[in-house]
Design a protein around this nucleic acid. Structure first.
Lengths: 187, 187, 187, 187
DNA sequence: TGTTAAGCGAGACGGTACGTCGCGTCTTAAT
DNA sequence: ATTAAGACGCGACGTACCGTCTCGCTTAACA
């Protein structure tokens, strides 16, 4: 007898959120600002999303494009390609800020964390595929847990780029890939 | 020539901040609350610290005790010891939340980032010492940049514990240390 | 289309303002205090009034009762009656303070001045009526501008009572009325 | 063994106060601002003046030049000359604001009021002289109290210019002077 | 094909924190 | 002992967002 939630309103909110985050960073993201910019009433926003963060997460997930797993036949080259893509994205301070903000929220709010976990898993899928192919080719010690291997690969980049907030040059990337390949190689 | 910033006021603010963070978490941390609880005027707070985050950073840094670089004579054992300590601290969700908050702020605010950088360097010092000793003993390839080596060591732990928000078991730690030792070994 | 400003909130603010001014004088009047005492949020207060002074002006205007123009048939007696009323009110130092505060604000802020002008005109209406009746009766020179006549009547009282801050005895009042009546009489 | 209050400091404060009031109006007048601009410490300021208002009053009194009583031989012309001078000064909104601010303070603070009263009396002296001369010449009814006569003269101007905040044209001034001369004339 | 409950935009509401300002007092080192 | 400098506790300022609520209007699902 009633009326369903409006897809139009939802789309306007998501768009506004993405614009705000891109233009003014996460600190410009505000329930009131989304309402102002989208022309959607605050009450409507709360009918669609339990919190502002939920809206944010959905909007951001919507924004990130899928990446395919490379398949050059060499672990070293596959990793180089993936990490180049990663560094290009992570080089943008706004994206780093966004990521860290989301990370922060996901520590406080378990429900938010669960949604975020799914997003992260999607992002990790290509790397997992690359590692499994390398294992099959005998380039990676098969006794190593794939998840741990993943953190071995990503970790140094994340640590340098996100935590230390230092640039990662392509020289650095080459060295790190070389070290990781050694680490994962069968004895 | 003028009156110096009061050490008493500073101590009261730091104490109040530490109490608040310990008792009510980061979300209970508020300039007004610190002022109320410490009996220090807000204006004084802003005379000592440019922002609340700066106060927070100092208070938290104050809280964490110094760690000595272990010296067992073996890189593997030194790393195990250090990472056990690290995991014990990083296992506390409140500390993780705190860390990520600080990280977030340091992306936005360059001046804050500089302060944070100093803190991080202090934390990194022992690991750097361990790696340099290992290099001297011939356990680490001397052509590897110490900073990169540091990220190789820390990265996987940080990635799994902080980013993926997964526990790192001592089994995991052993495996990761083993892989890192292999990666850094001279050819 | 939106929700209208709440009359309840407005009434509570006006009441609180009047109480404060009556109990503690103008210096006790503070936005924060009105908010506290009335239970109305500060933000709401600023939705209703541009400044605290505007609230004050409205509250005070609300407080002062209307005065009817007397009609004794004699200008002298009409003026005596009006000025007695005026002196009774102006004898109260709190009211004088209030008046001067409002006067001060209206010099700085043109919009406030406009509001104040309306209030003043209401207050002046009875005097204008009295003068016009006297003119019709031939007691006042018809070539005199009514506004100037008004200032002739009010001026000496205002000057002595408000500016010089001296009491105006009923002897003084009688003399002044007598002089004014002479001044305004047709030649 | 002690040291007298520095005249230099006093002069610097008075100068700074006058500059502030002239450039930015009374609302720009602040203890802190005087201290900043003059380079005189706040504590010094409080050693010289009990309150900021006291400094203000002294500085402003210092600013106003003395006016001589005119002596044309005709009350009408004497008043015209005096009121022209008065209107020239009172036409400046900053001076009006200043005056009203001082008036306001003098209602709250009795000690301030006393100092202000002296200043006002100095200002009134020439008008009193003019009236007494006119009385001696037989132009003013000798039974009228000089103080009341003074308020008869000043009142209408003050009422129109300061209270109603309306311009007083020279036409208005002529009419008002004419009416006042009639009012004061012997019967 | 009305009827009607829910969605909608708009934005007011009570809160709470923010960062700044001015006050009058107090502490320091220098004169 | 006075001075310049400026920190101190205090408390008001005006603004921003929060999540809830109250409006009057519109619209889709049901009767």
């Amino acid at each position: 007898m009633a009326r369903p939630l409006s897809e139009t309103a939802r789309a306007k909110m998501l768009l506004a959120t993405q614009e705000i985050v891109m233009l003014h960073g996460l600190d410009g993201f505000t329930i009131d600002e989304v309402s102002r910019r989208s022309g959607v009433a605050k009450s409507t926003l709360y009918r669609h999303f339990r919190t502002g963060d939920e809206l944010l997460l959905v909007a951001v997930d919507d924004l990130i494009e899928e990446v395919d797993a490379p398949d050059t036949g060499s672990l070293r080259d596959d990793l180089r390609e993936m990490l180049n893509t990663f560094m290009a994205v992570a080089g943008n301070p706004k994206i780093r800020q966004l990521f860290v903000s989301i990370l922060k929220r996901s520590i406080t709010d378990p429900e938010f964390a669960a949604t975020f976990r799914n997003v992260k898993e999607q992002r990790h899928a290509p790397l997992r595929v690359v590692l499994q192919r390398a294992m099959a080719r005998g380039e990676v010690d098969p006794s190593i847990d794939v998840d741990l291997a993943m953190h071995m690969v990503e970790g140094p980049f994340v640590s340098k780029r996100m935590f230390a907030d230092e640039d990662v040059t392509s020289r650095d990337a080459d060295v790190l890939v070389e070290l990781v390949v050694r680490a994962l190689a069968p004895r």
